[in-house]
Amino acid sequence: MPETPVFTPVETMSYTQAVTELENILRTMQSDKCDIDLLACYTRRATELLESCRSRLTATDAELREILASLGV
């Protein structure tokens, strides 16, 4: 069995770092180097990164209302 890769905790990463890692995962998957045993591991990591990035970009309705209220517009 190949060794399971160790990933940086997503919350300590910048948005750019997270997107760069996503691109690397994609590149690995498109290459022959990708081990089938690690596929699930990579996919899980990619999902985690995607979720983190998306939640950084978008806000919930409650948050938006709060922001609008604080601006008094």
Binding site: V19, L22, L26, M29, T43, A46, T47, L50, R54, L57
Partner: peptide, 11 residues
Amino acid sequence: LSTLRDLGNAI
């Protein structure tokens, strides 16, 4: 967001 979507789909 669209870059993220594309990356997710491609992965």
